[in-house]
Design a protein around this nucleic acid. Sequence first.
RNA 1: GUGGGAGUAGUUCAAUGGCAGAGCGUCAGAUUGUGGUUCUGAUUGUUGCGGGUUCGAGCCCCGUCUCCCACCCCA
Length: 435
Amino acid sequence: MNQTVEPKILKGFRDSLPETETVRKQIIRKLEDTFTRFGFDPVDTPVLEYASVLLGKGSGETDKQIYRFRDNGDRDVAMRFDLTVPFARFTAAHRNEIPMPFRRYHIAKVWRGENTQKGRYREFVQCDFDIVGSDSVLNDLDILLLMRESFRVMGIEKITFHLSHRGIFNTFLEKEGIGNLSGDILRTVDKLGKIGEDEVGRLLTELTDAEKAEKVLSYIKTEETNEKTLEKLIRLCGGETEETKRLAFLLRKLDGAEDGARFILNPSITRGLDYYTGIVYETFLDDLPGIGSVCSGGRYDNLTSIYARERLPGVGSSIGLDRLMAALEELNMIPKRKTGTAALICFQDTGYLDSYLALTRDFRKAGIACELYPEAKKLPKQFSFAESKGIPFAVICGEEEFRNGTVTVKNLNRRKNYTGLSFGEAVNLIQQDEK
RNA sequence: GUGGGAGUAGUUCAAUGGCAGAGCGUCAGAUUGUGGUUCUGAUUGUUGCGGGUUCGAGCCCCGUCUCCCACCCCA
């Protein structure tokens, strides 16, 4: 039997080793705590949906990227492409069980069959949070505050939130008599950061004419301050509207940044997805903007239009966890933690097996994540095993300790011994360093 | 999906069409209750995969897979 199958995996799909997955789980835990503090509840939906439920919800481009096939019962099925469309179906299906306004978060994998690049995979995790069933600007504000808080708890402060307003932009386009070209113009304008003003101007001139292109270019330019940018938008729209007042309110409330995170009114942000109608935003790391937005979203008029009659407005955002982690890795910001295990119980003397087992049990009972080395090998051997796994502490007990009822703990990073400890002191020592 | 670049030991990288190599790492010992130095010895390969040309292919040609880059789109 020397015929083996090559252990290969598909393009754009990845394994996650403990050193990566431990960090990922830690980040997810922090995010879940944060979402919960903001009053959001978790939900889940199936990976597979009827293709008819998922198709035709984004642009034509997104349909091509959806994984779709016939299942064993010959049903036309598809894997979820994002978490928003399944959420729309979910909300329509459970409308009577959900009190409005509804705050939910959903952290799960999604699949897109597109070409890969750094920070672009075919299977990746999104962290979505939305508030539906209310038009209130306070929800827009809370989503933005939650975005800032989420990055703060992840320890990322050099970050910029670019925001803009789809509705105001459309008002402007209508006023200029080019509202019918909204979709094309939005997509073109969206490229400003990448291809520059001249090239965008050229493309806009192709779409309209030189004069209109000039006007649009002027509209999408970010001025020195948010106030000035806002003033310009109001002027180009022909005066204040409900929407500009709304945007002004948000910018006022978001002012007074307590850390490095900044909110910038950037009218060139438009988002490719069609369903946004109000405020939209994208988030870039100051040190690695090239990897793309790590958190995007906006306000939409009607989440469930395809599935139900009732109009259901909402606002939400999505953190791209895998892209974020790829960026953090590139920036050397991934914490070194390779395991959740805090202590290795060294095994030296087979005669004391029961004592080792009892010690292991007691540490676990006290909340210390630990494992007992399964063989009575030499200590250096056990130390280097712990080190290679990233376990910070070794518990060293032999005849002397068991006779005195004491515990010896070694901090493996500092190579420092703590002898003659009581069990409680040992637990404290290990827990202290946990933080 | 379209176009460009890359793929050699666990890893970083060598090898004019002519015996696949080095550093680092890993393992064992010097060292049977304490691993960062040193020394000794050992280990590591379907050159991504499959074909072709050739006396002979890691190297040239074709196909394919994966990664990286650009477009597209987006997290």
